[in-house]
Design a protein around this nucleic acid. Structure first.
Length: 225
DNA sequence: ACCTGATCATCT
DNA sequence: AGATGATCAGGT
């Protein structure tokens, strides 16, 4: 999908544009953009996110950059189940498996990605057909000091293990809010890891994901304010 | 090859 | 209903 809308010049403009999505169905938005709604998401897993990027004029699709480069905002859709709670974890970024010496939380990709996020809640219960799913109220978020501290602890624990060459010992149950899980086209894909001592080995590519308990807390904080 | 956008499929 | 490992499509 190519971008049609012009990129927002300010965060305020972005938030205003995103607000126009509130209450609309995916079919409505697709129609406005002249797009077809896929029959299902089995072969279109990123479709909702990509369509909203188009609607909002995101500029960095497929690039390792914030979606709205000029204003430093990352866009994330947040799929909600029939109870209004996050249905899936949220992918943050690929886990760097080598050249991690001296890398700190402060200059980590995770922190940069999550520094400023536009969350767009979208109905995702399987009981609602894709075209009829509605978009909720988008909101902009930055980690508060408690959230950032918690994420930093998770990140540090996981990256320490990777630096020690213990990637194979990491499982998805580690990390209070941030977990590491596979992120690959299939389970036979391999990418290179480098340990502290410079030794190499091959392993399945992994990604950082935010647990649903974390994104649920963002929704709850949003309702309070 | 590896990033982006994520959800699917299965098990508990 | 939630969690986890596996997977799909498109761009650079």
């Amino acid at each position: 999908m190519r971008t049609l809308a012009s990129p927002p010049r300010t965060e305020q403009e972005l938030l205003h544009n995103a607000g126009q999505l509130t209450g609309k169905s995916l079919l409505q938005v697709a129609s406005e953009l002249g797009l077809q709604v896929p029959v299902d998401q089995k072969r279109a897993k990123g479709w909702v996110g990509e369509m909203i990027e188009v609607y909002l004029g995101a500029t960095a699709s497929s690039l390792p950059e914030p979606d709205f480069q000029n204003i430093g905002v990352e866009l994330k859709t947040l799929p909600l189940n029939h109870l209004g709670k996050p249905k899936e974890t949220t992918f943050v970024c690929t886990v760097s498996l080598n050249e991690n010496a001296g890398r700190t939380w402060e200059d980590s990709v995770v922190r940069h990605k999550l520094n400023r996020v536009l969350w767009v809640p979208v109905e995702a219960g399987v009981d609602i057909a894709l075209p009829h799913r509605r978009i909720g109220s988008p909101f902009i978020w930055s980690p508060d000091p408690d959230q950032e501290a918690a994420l930093r602890i998770d990140w540090q624990e996981l990256m320490d293990m990777i630096a020690m060459g213990e990637i194979e010992r990491i499982n998805s149950q580690q990390g209070r809010y941030l977990q590491i899980r596979p992120k690959a086209a299939n389970a036979s894909i391999l990418s290179q890891t480098t340990k502290e001592n410079g030794q190499h080995s091959m392993t399945l590519p992994r990604g950082f994901y935010l647990r649903t308990s974390f994104t649920e807390s963002l929704l709850l904080m949003q309702i309070e304010n």
